[in-house]
Design a binder for these strands. Structure first.
Length: 873
RNA sequence: GCCCUCUUGGCGAAAUUGGUAUACGCAACAGACUUAAAAUCUGUGGGUCGAAAGACCGUGCCGGUUCAAGUCCGGCAGAGGGCACCA
């Protein structure tokens, strides 16, 4: 027995070694050995060099799930890898004259060591990095398959160009008009790029969201909005005169009910008609160039005035035949719908602004309920609400929905040059995913460009296309472009000299299928389908909300694409998704700038917290609680915490304070509290061990009252913790274990102060054992240490979840609050199955109730079995 | 501008999904042990009034539904997040 302080550093290293040597967390690769598969995965880290507390929180949560599910009898797959391609490696190479490869692998080595010090129950035998040739080789194989399947194509497109990172960005990577990494204002450039046909799956990606009930509603909604489905019509407007091949203009609208309110047509500056007209019209050419210059940033859009250029051309209104002027307008987007719209100023704010500026007619056609049609007019605010159609010929008197349907039928029936005037159409905001990046440190796109044969995929037998290592970063841009020999290659078709593609893939491609690779990381093909199908979908995926759209949408698309190309047979990669909150910390500042927490000492005076500089003693300003960042210097290094308190303390703390999906505030006091608990548990288990009890079956009939109560409490707690861990309510589980530990302490006191029989002591030992089993997924090293102290068999890490004695979890009586007129006035202990007549009798006999009734019958008596009684007087 | 989420003690939070509001922890205060401190243990702890028993008020604000509202409905305010010239 030991009442010494628990030495976490010593114990943790010891148990990690034991787990590692016994390989207890390695998952069998034999498919038939996993009858009850459970795949838990945390989003793999980018190897930046050091883990941060956000990682600690993320990986601890996943580890608790993994260890808990293992104890519940699942065959758990819990792998780890590295999202290892990307810009920072190149930036470091340029800055420090290192090679991206060595920089990356060195970072991986140090982060692996850090993760191992956390005692995570990972299957390290499956580890890989996306920059491993074996991994990107398989990715290139899939690229070729996707290309064959028509899922990848090449097009010249206007792309988002990041002038700082000197690369193209996907739409999803442009945030407020700025590059997601560099923060630089994004420019528009014309480039020929490779695209993945994610839009083929727009409808499927959208509708399948409804079935992802293991996902947070918030994420589903964000993806729904991002995909942006809208139902409308494509309507042809006949031009009054032909221009080139144009006899009509086609627009997309969702408000065909308001077509009688149309007063102009507007087309994008890049619309083919606008370009054609500009060839003869220098003024228009100028205007188009101006439009292109206007950025896509939020600021630019907000301040950009509506500009239009009157082409002098007109179209005929499809019903009335009235001529409507055609404008080229800066607010019309070429890449949505048809790049042309009809303007209905009365019912669209943007159209109204435009109409007022160019003095176009404003005809209201939707009348708000209760308004007088003769008195209703639109001034400077468009009316976009519900109402009844008017000024609209055959639509008059209809609701908006009815009018849409009537107009749709009418236009579909009309013919224009032999085809219907209009067709119903569904549009999506989702764009195809541009994956070409002009970077070195990424997966090479396996394509060869031949002057005669065009772009051709590298034949699979010639894969992988390996990144050359002899490169330099003297100049900005892609060093692959400047490599003396790497590009030179023979055309796989005609054999003539040809050139390799030098673009590499967006790193989001790498992370779109790694979860599938983990199921068999040594396979010669990207996946071994039968094994991947066995493990997938991931049962519980855990990561940050910042990936709600990018990574999670790409992965959903990729899974479908892999299904189409035979690499998998499922659509949705992640059955359960959990998005954890950030770890935040107070900030400190003095005149010279931000201070790190270890430069500051905090004390309390008159209820106010005061911070002073640890060296100078000068007062320091306590700032807001913010996301940990290097710039604010409010970061905490997990290594320091583990060295000072141990991994279990860090794990317990990140689980304890806040619900896991909310931000958690890192406080020194909180960590100390967590550490205190580890010591307390160690002492408690030491005391139990000293009682000399035996691991033997317990006869409830032989127990003293307090011991029976303890056993009941413990067995009921197992059920609660079960529920909490299943629903990832770690903070509640921590609270419950605290409370239970207090009960055990109280029971030890009872055992010492009263005559405890052997059964009592055995029950106490059992309680200790079960408490250990309940907290072991969260504090695994302390768990093993206590397990050993209690002389339990084997390792707690491989021991099944405690069996509960059902007889003890049956609750036979309940203390019910008795309310009078909804206010609690008394408590009454009743048998759990007491029938209402008995309850009524007992309640009415209560003195408070008698007084309140004053001899009258209650007006109402509400009895909710097992819950509450309310007497209404 | 549009969409969404959140708001409970000094602080992080809990509340069986409409049924005892504030569990558990942190910080605080008081006591025990100690020469002393640390560590540990015990106790107190929403507000107002009261010596006490107790009474009244109380989950951002206003209103509603209900025997009963932190929880449901309507409105308002504040904080956070997503999208954004999407026709």
């Amino acid at each position: 027995m030991s009442t010494d302080r628990y030495n976490a550093n010593d114990a943790e290293a010891r148990w990690q070694k034991i787990w590692d040597e016994a390989k207890i967390f390695n998952t069998s690769t034999e498919i038939e050995q996993s009858k009850n598969p459970y795949y838990v995965l945390e989003m793999f880290p980018y190897p930046s060099g050091r883990i941060h507390v956000g990682h600690v929180r993320n990986y601890t949560m996943g580890d608790v799930v993994a260890r808990y599910k293992r104890a519940k009898g699942c065959d758990v797959l819990h792998p780890m890898g590295w999202d290892a391609f990307g810009m920072p490696a190149e930036n470091a190479a340029m800055k420090n004259n290192t090679h991206p490869k060595s920089w990356t692998y060195e970072n991986i080595a140090s982060m692996r060591k850090q993760l191992k010090s956390m005692g995570l129950s990972l299957d390290w035998s499956r580890e890989f990095a996306t920059c491993d040739v074996e991994y990107y080789h398989k990715q290139q194989q899939m690229f070729v398959d996707f290309l064959d399947a028509g899922l990848i194509y090449r097009k010249n497109a206007k792309v988002n160009w990041d002038p700082v990172d000197m690369t193209v960005l996907a739409n999803e990577q442009v945030i407020d008009g700025k590059g997601w990494r560099s923060g630089a204002e994004v420019e528009q450039r014309d480039l020929t790029q490779w695209f993945m046909k994610i839009t083929d799956y727009s409808e499927d990606l959208l509708s399948a969201l409804d079935e992802l009930d293991g996902w947070p509603e918030k994420v589903r909604l964000m993806q729904k909005n991002w995909i942006g489905r809208s139902e409308g019509m494509r309507v042809k407007f006949e031009m009054s005169e032909q221009v080139g091949d144009f006899t009509n203009l086609e627009v997309f609208t969702t408000r065909h009910d308001t077509i009688f309110g149309a007063s102009f047509l507007a087309i994008a500056a890049d619309h083919p008609l606008s370009l054609e007209l500009a060839e003869q019209n220098a003024e228009l050419a100028n205007f188009n160039a101006e439009c292109r210059k206007i950025g896509t940033s939020a600021a630019a859009i907000e301040t950009a005035e509506k500009h239009g250029f009157n082409t002098g051309l007109t179209v005929k209104h499809p019903i009335t035949g009235t001529p409507l002027p055609i404008y080229v307008a800066n607010f019309v987007l070429m890449d949505y719908g048809t790049g042309a719209v009809f303007g209905c100023p009365a019912h669209d704010q943007r159209d109204l602004d435009f109409a007022r500026k160019y003095e176009l007619t404003v005809t209201p056609v939707v009348l708000p309920t209760g308004e007088n049609p003769d008195a209703f007019y639109v001034q400077n605010e468009a009316y976009v609400g519900e109402g009844t159609l008017f000024n609209s010929d055959f639509l008059d008197g209809m609701s908006i929905d009815d009018a849409k349907e009537a107009m749709a039928k009418k236009l579909e029936a009309l013919k224009f040059e032999g085809t219907p005037q209009a067709e119903r159409q569904v549009n999506y905001k989702l764009r195809d995913w541009g994956i070409s990046r002009q970077r070195y440190w990424g997966c090479p796109i396996p394509v060869i460009h031949c002057d005669d044969c065009g772009p051709l995929p590298v034949p699979k037998e010639n894969l992988p296309v390996i990144l050359p290592e002899d490169i330099n970063f003297d100049k900005p841009g892609n060093p692959l472009d400047r490599h003396p020999t790497w590009r030179e290659v023979d055309c796989p078709k005609c054999g003539k000299a040809a050139k390799r593609e030098t673009d590499t893939m967006d790193t989001f491609v790498d992370s779109s299928w790694y979860f599938a690779r983990f199921t068999k990381p040594e396979a010669d093909t990207p996946t071994e389908p039968s094994i991947a199908n066995h493990w997938l979908p991931v049962d519980q995926y855990i990561g940050g909300i910042e990936h709600a759209i990018l990574h999670l949408l790409y992965s959903r698309f990729f899974t479908r694409a892999m299904q189409k190309t035979g690499h998998l047979d499922l659509k949705e990669p992640f059955k359960g998704l959990f998005t954890q909150g950030m770890v935040v910390h107070e900030t400190y500042k003095n005149d010279s700038g931000w201070l790190s927490p270890d430069e500051v000492s905090i004390s309390e005076k008159d209820g106010k917290r005061i911070a002073v500089h640890i060296d100078t003693g000068a007062e320091v300003k306590i700032g807001g609680i913010e996301k940990m960042s290097k710039s604010k210097r409010n970061t905490i290094d997990p290594d320091d915490i583990i060295a000072a308190y141990g991994a279990d303390t860090a794990r317990w703390f990140v689980l304890s304070d806040s619900p896991p999906d909310r931000d958690v505030i890192w406080t020194e006091a909180g960590v100390e509290g967590a550490h205190r608990f580890t010591q307390k548990v160690w002492r408690t288990m030491g005391e139990i061990a000293a009682l000399g009890a035996q691991h033997q079956p317990i006869d409830n009939g032989q127990l003293s009252d307090w011991a029976l109560e303890l056993r009941k409490h413990i067995h009921q707690t197992v059920e609660k913790i079960d529920e909490m861990l299943n629903t990832l309510k770690f903070n509640s589980a921590v609270a419950q274990i605290h409370s239970t530990a207090n009960q055990v302490d109280a029971a030890i006191k009872k055992a010492k102060s009263s005559k405890a029989n052997d059964h009592d002591l055995n029950a106490l030992l059992e309680s200790g054992r079960i408490v250990v089993q309940m907290f072991a997924p969260m504090m695994p090293h302390l768990g093993e240490e206590c397990w050993q102290e209690l002389k339990c068999e084997g390792l707690v890490s491989t021991t099944p979840w405690p069996e509960i004695d059902k007889a003890l979890t049956v609750v036979d009586s309940v203390t019910m609050p008795i309310q009078i007129n909804g206010k609690k006035k008394a408590m009454l202990e009743l048998p759990i199955n007491a029938d209402e007549a008995i309850i009524k009798e007992k309640v009415l006999a209560l003195e408070v109730v008698q007084t309140a009734l004053g001899g009258n019958e209650p007006k109402k008596l509400i009895i909710v079995p097992k819950r509450i009684v309310n007497v209404v007087v």
